Amino acid sequence: MMTAAIKPTDDADFARFPQFAPFAFRQDRKSVQLANHHYAAHLTRTNPGLAAAVVNAGAVETDILRAAPAAMRLGGKILGPLVYDSIEKAAHNPVETTLRDDWETPTYWGKPGRFEQRTPITLDASVTEHLMDISRTLTGA
């Protein structure tokens, strides 16, 4: 799974999960991103042999700004070479996970292109199950 750069920790407030209404970026960003970590932990606990990971791909050099206002496109062209990672660098860790089996699952990669810099996802199982129960109720699964 891809997510923004956020380490797997147990300090998020999930009181507003999953509605986040009205969405407040500063308040809700962490719990939205950490839900991915919890899902990876859930998948590996409930599916022995399944490998799950969360990856921060970073700011990637794509054509995402093609429909943005002219000023944003210009800013992207000027700052892009300084701040964007190549697609190859962004894809490095996910590709390596398919080629190697020397990584613990679930794992989080916070730095694009740095396969050896990884963090095992060890979250409170009761919080993970609470989030999964909420998700099951929401989806009817």
Results as ranks from 00 to 15, higher is better:
133 D>R: 10
82 L>T: 01
89 K>I: 11
27 Q>C: 03
17 F>M: 00
90 A>R: 01
106 P>E: 12
125 A>K: 03
60 V>E: 02
73 R>M: 07
61 E>W: 09
48 P>N: 02
129 E>G: 03
24 A>E: 15
128 T>Y: 10
50 L>H: 09
77 K>E: 01
62 T>E: 10
140 G>K: 09
5 A>R: 13
118 R>H: 15
11 D>N: 14
94 P>V: 13
129 E>R: 01
16 R>F: 04
43 L>M: 12
96 E>T: 11
36 N>V: 14
50 L>M: 14
26 R>K: 15
141 A>K: 14
112 P>A: 13
28 D>W: 03
56 N>K: 01
43 L>A: 11
68 A>D: 15
69 P>V: 04
134 I>D: 00
31 S>M: 10
9 T>N: 05
31 S>D: 11
60 V>P: 00
40 A>K: 08
19 Q>H: 15
91 A>S: 14
41 A>V: 08
58 G>P: 06
37 H>K: 07
27 Q>D: 13
96 E>R: 14
101 D>W: 07
115 F>D: 06
92 H>S: 14
1 M>S: 13
139 T>V: 02
127 V>Q: 12
79 L>C: 09
66 R>K: 15
51 A>F: 15
30 K>F: 05
122 T>W: 05
114 R>D: 15
123 L>G: 05
78 I>E: 02
70 A>L: 12
51 A>D: 10
52 A>Q: 01
2 M>T: 12
53 A>R: 00
44 T>C: 15
53 A>W: 05
97 T>P: 01
42 H>L: 14
57 A>V: 10
88 E>L: 15
21 A>T: 12
116 E>H: 12
54 V>Q: 05
59 A>L: 12
62 T>Q: 11
121 I>P: 04
33 Q>Y: 08
63 D>C: 07
98 T>R: 03
8 P>D: 04
93 N>S: 03
4 A>E: 05
70 A>V: 10
61 E>A: 14
58 G>E: 04
94 P>Q: 13
127 V>E: 14
115 F>I: 08
42 H>P: 02
95 V>A: 11
